[in-house]
Design a binder for these strands. Sequence first.
DNA 1: GTGAAAGCGCTAACAA
DNA 2: TTGTTAGCGCTTTCAC
Lengths: 329, 329
Amino acid sequence: MRRGMREVASAAGVSVSTVANVLNNPAVVAEGTRRRVEAAMDSVGFVRSGPARQLRGLPSRLVGSVTLDQANPFYAELNRGIEDHLDDAGCMLLTCSTDLRADKELRLLRLLEEQSPRGVIITPTGEEPQRLTAVVARGTPVVLLDARQNSLDLCAVAVDHVLGGRLAGEHLVRLGHRRVAFVTAGPDIEPVRQRHDGLRQALGGPPVEVRLAAAGFAEGTDAAVRALVEAADPPTAAVCVNDVVAVALIRGLQARGLRVPEDLSVVGYDDLPFAAHVRPALTTVRRPIRELGRIAAELLLDESAAGHRHRELVFAPELVTRATTVRVG
Amino acid sequence: MRRGMREVASAAGVSVSTVANVLNNPAVVAEGTRRRVEAAMDSVGFVRSGPARQLRGLPSRLVGSVTLDQANPFYAELNRGIEDHLDDAGCMLLTCSTDLRADKELRLLRLLEEQSPRGVIITPTGEEPQRLTAVVARGTPVVLLDARQNSLDLCAVAVDHVLGGRLAGEHLVRLGHRRVAFVTAGPDIEPVRQRHDGLRQALGGPPVEVRLAAAGFAEGTDAAVRALVEAADPPTAAVCVNDVVAVALIRGLQARGLRVPEDLSVVGYDDLPFAAHVRPALTTVRRPIRELGRIAAELLLDESAAGHRHRELVFAPELVTRATTVRVG
DNA sequence: GTGAAAGCGCTAACAA
DNA sequence: TTGTTAGCGCTTTCAC
């Protein structure tokens, strides 16, 4: 069934080392022999064995990507960026989703390590790096995504979320908003806290905090929306932790007969492809998602290069003004 | 750096085969020895080598997924379904994107084969199965996704797109529409032709054909939109090849000052998560995307089971009526 | 220019 | 109950 170098060798009437030479050192083999071997490869349907090469200690062509959820459009886009860069290098991407569960992350990292990948790009579920410490100690290169490097010395690709939160806040302040909510869903992981901090800086004080019950498009928004609009001194604007939450919020507001932006201005985060296409079009904070993935892949592949030095790249997000924010009295 | 069974063996003062027994046949090894070996595994940081196991002919834990574009929300969702089922079986997913290019597909299939995966789940770029024939002949299990099985005898997970097109068409006919357009982007691959056929059946005649310049959310819609609305006898409704195209169309219409659904009813396809959240909310044809992925993974893993018989599963899509379609004069 | 041989980490059949 | 051994497909010296 599976034809290897041995089959090629016997079909071409040469030894396996000659076949190996054709593959790895073609200059050294005679023209005619080379042709014969190449023909034999075609006719037997030769497929080089990656596992065997790895066993010999050659660099693996596999790279792991550990995100929160590859179905989430943000991570899907990110993975595509990673894939694009890896593809140029003949490498392939193993994608996995942790669902923000530390135990699943741990298990996935183990599984990944067993494939002896060239490295792993990870959006960590938590800040404590114990899980990663072991992986790093065993020599698997790790690139952090959307997480600042901490005790571990690693390459990292990050976004300045403090700036992102500040951009959103300053925009609203410029429009005259004074009471502003920060709307999240799910746990307060580090990037979320940073956005919160930035927003607070811009407002000169803490925002009103609102938490939706789930991260999905329209799940569990009702209670949060009610809390938001029925507050004693209701906010006039809301900064959301991401575009998905923003859309869920807008939908919840509309369901209660409230208008965006007239009754509440809303700012998203990420500028996912759909952000420009919901109605009203979403004002949001953009980060260059695919580029983030590409750079992460680049850093990872560079780990194996001689004289590699770990680097941390921080991207600056930018405000994209659309139709969900307006000036307030 | 990387600690294997040998290191564990010497740390525990046993032979490698005893370590192997602890791993593969724990019942056979003495309680005390087992504990000693397990302790040694922990202390040296043992990671089992997948490549070495594969070399020995054990089943691979890698599965390839070849889609058009993993950043596309449809395929992202699909891959998540695949991942979920694979994860239960301790397998991992290699995702790659062909961008509908046959040459890239071919190259990716080669790369995948070199990893000797347990199998490959593929949304083929074209109908000619030559590329796949070779893969199948070499013994790699292949499951077709969104493609009917053809000359090759393979497992396949498909959606009845003729029915899908018909559902969209019948809905519009019920609303009194007579002139209906079919709006596509990109090449007419088989699933697209099937939707077209279904629509034609419902209409009792061919739809007006409109092709957007690109598949992206809002790219190149302008000319197509103009052609659509400036036709001598303009259609009153449009069935789109997918939700992304539908949103692009709606946006193009709105940009020209036309209203949906008053000036044109629009039907999408897929019911992607955002479909319910664009405004007006999209009437569309739903298929159970994640489930499709799960089943595909299930079929693939079953290929290695004794007595496996190839199966083709066809899912029926269903119409989801929202706000982009209305009754016409 | 070509081939023989050793060994990567593991498993499985057999020996002790 | 544990150890010895051969070999999976490949690369890499080193001889020829």
